[in-house]
């Protein structure tokens, strides 16, 4: 019996490939495909009352979503917050990676490890620590008041969109650092020297050579930050207050307190579709822009 299988295994490359892939495949099917399918089907049902769901197929939930101003506003706000987070992360992480890739000669790994050090603690812990920094009696406010610069604490720091943007930016920075670093590290320094040799200033060389060549990393970083932050609900729940609430908090409520699973599922599906569309658009636009640059 074992001999039989061994023969098949040895002869057929497809069998070999699927055997090796099977643990991952099974996991993905169970943990991704099945829940997604469930979510899609639930988005087409109707919640009759607290306990009962009507299982006839309908697109009414999607229409409901767009008729509720709150949901549309929250969707837009989620996208806006993620967009800001992505932008700020890129602007701050890019120079750091550039420095490590081109100017640090020894112990590059140490730099990367130090930069990602905060990410060794739990996500929740980091969110709470921002509470200590940004709160009304937090580090920033109390030192500004003690220094006599302010008489009243800054209220926009805490329980606001600002708080959510700051916290998410910090939380996801490490994920931007790595793809950016890898793509910059791969750029041969002689390309930059060649650019200078061919008469371009440092600034021009950056925009015409370095940036276009690091584009895979930039797009990677955009996707890696944008996709998870749109759906984040821990940070807005803990630091967002009413101002910093995002669509994911509402989705959570639909599955919980409000108990309208179909509408929650429809909102989640809409968010998923929007994120996919946006990422496609963003990566295409970035590529186009760079082509125009060069």
């Amino acid at each position: 019996m074992i001999g039989f299988w061994r023969k098949i295994y040895a002869k057929n490359d497809n069998v070999k490939a699927y055997t090796l892939l099977s643990p991952a495949l099974i996991l993905i099917i169970l943990a991704m495909v099945v829940p997604m399918a469930l979510m899609l089907s639930f988005s087409m049902f109707t919640q009759v009352n607290m306990m009962e769901i009507d299982y006839t197929f309908t697109f009414q939930r999607y229409i409901d979503f767009f008729q509720k101003n709150l949901l549309v506003t929250l969707l837009i706000k989620s996208i806006k917050i993620s967009f800001l987070v992505t932008l700020i992360t890129l602007i701050t992480a890019y120079p750091v990676c550039y420095y490590i890739a081109f100017y640090v000669k020894k112990n590059k790994m140490l730099w990367l490890v130090l930069l990602t050090l905060p990410f060794w603690t739990s996500y929740l812990l980091r969110v709470f620590s921002w509470k200590i920094i940004l709160g009304t009696k937090g580090v920033i406010n109390s030192s500004l008041i003690n220094a006599g610069i302010l008489s009243e604490p800054l209220t926009f720091l805490m329980y606001s969109e600002t708080a959510v943007v700051i916290t998410l930016t910090h939380a996801w920075a490490a994920f931007a650092l790595l793809p950016l670093y890898v793509s910059l590290e791969k750029i041969d320094f002689s390309f930059i020297e060649a650019g200078r040799d061919l008469g371009l200033s440092r600034f021009e060389v950056f925009w015409k050579i370095t940036f276009p060549l690091s584009l895979p990393g930039v797009i990677g970083a955009i996707l890696i930050i944008f996709i998870p932050t749109v759906g984040d609900y821990v940070t807005p729940a803990l630091l967002g207050g009413t101002d910093g609430r995002m669509l994911s908090n509402m989705i959570q409520a639909y599955f919980g307190k409000i108990n309208n699973i179909p509408l929650g599922a429809a909102s989640a599906t809409i968010m998923l579709t929007t994120v996919i569309l946006i990422t496609i658009i963003v990566s295409n636009v970035t590529k186009r822009l760079t082509q125009r640059l060069t």
């Binding site: 041969d188 002689s190 390309f191 020297e193 060649a194 650019g195 061919l198 060549l213 060069t294």
Partner: peptide, 12 residues
């Protein structure tokens, strides 16, 4: 102007 050892032809 320089001809580089690895030629440094811009790949993009």
């Amino acid at each position: 102007n320089m001809v580089f050892q690895n030629y440094a032809i811009f790949p993009h």
